[in-house]
Design a protein around this nucleic acid. Sequence first.
RNA 1: GGAGGGGUGCCUGAGCGGUUAAAAGGGGCGGACUGUAAAUCCGCUGGCUAUGCCUACGUUGGUUCAAAUCCAACCCCCUCCA
Length: 417
Amino acid sequence: MSTHKSEFIQTLVERGFLHQCTDLETVDARAVKEVITAYVGYDATADSLHIGNLVSIMMLHWLQQTGHQPIVLMGGGTTKVGDPSGKDETRQILTDEKINANISSIRQTFDSFLTFGDGSQDAIMVNNASWLDELAYIPLLRDIGRHFTINRMLTFDSVKLRLDREQPLTFLEFNYMILQAYDFLELAKRHDCTLQMGGSDQWGNIINGIELGRRADERELYGLTTPLITTASGAKMGKTAAGAVWLRPERYTPYDYWQFWRNTEDADVGRFLKLFTTLPMDEIARLDALQGSEINDAKKVLANAATALLHGDDAAREAAETSEKTFESGVTADGLPTTDVPKAELESGIPLFALLARAGLAGSNGEGRRLIKGGGARVNDIAIAEETAEISSDSINDDGVIKLSAGKKRHALIRPV
RNA sequence: GGAGGGGUGCCUGAGCGGUUAAAAGGGGCGGACUGUAAAUCCGCUGGCUAUGCCUACGUUGGUUCAAAUCCAACCCCCUCCA
């Protein structure tokens, strides 16, 4: 196989971003001679994106780095309807204020990966509410609906799978692909956007946009998808006990984020370095070749690089230091999550299980008790086995805090105030 | 509109009058082994300062000493027919 002509496609391929493309040769050729404008769409259902979105964010990053223009499309309009994909959970109706607040919070994440501005290669963020809100039903049916045949819509996986499993598919959901197709057409008209990127599950929706572009406006549009990233064990990435791994620090601290990457499975390190860091390929090849416990060094590099990319160099360094102290030197690090407890309360003694719950290491007092019974609870690194043990100010260590641990990895500090 | 089937804990899914805070598996948490990895093995997995109390099997009532289990109405889902 010959290598690709454009830096953009070359980068995507060698780093493992490319799953499918509607016309790789043409996109490759165009990327050589002109600035390509491409977009990825994101829903605004929460105030933060998560690890699952990171692959496409990195792809936008490389798009810009290789000389092209990224568009971040926020689904402000589609979120108002509620994303119909997934199960038939009751959709949360979000208010406009909430959606807009979500969008501005999410925007901050993109500032870490993209350069926004007015230049030809500067990224822009747009909200599909600005056109979807104004759509009128009859004109939409007449101008857009006429280009879709039910016959064809029924062949798309998103629809077909649902029908095959004999699961209900509402008319609303059925229309979702039309709205997304419409987004692509609108972006093509407004911003001369010619490429839509997304996860492999978006393939059908992307195709629809491309077809609509050709039929409604004689535009030549392209689509490109990333593979679904799973861990080597087959688990969907980014689903941890506490829930999703969020990208906003308010939801998921830089320290936890660093730890998330540090705990990558051996088999995933090379792949993740390529996808989630911007380290040069030869450096990654060297790290990927490490064997046995040396792989831990590669994991630290991964954690440092990925955290620095999202949260900045300082935050990454701090997280690395806290981790080093906690796991390798056995020193109490002040970068751990800290809970303030009034001195007076400590004087009179607090049951350990309650303190574990307050520090967030246990979800309830009962869980705290179970943790102690199971032998996973430690105070200042000393295991406590007595379920009703009380902690008082006697436990305050030389650093003026009490260090609590749940298992080997989860630590927190109690600070008397 | 008619005829059937079904709604159980984070998820899947058993139970079909008391011994049921509810089998089993998954997931999660903890322990052992390691390298803050994987695999494996073991324990735990509703809440409550707790030999007890409270809340839970779609909703609301009822039968019963006793109901997730029986009855009624209602809500929701699925299949077939129209």
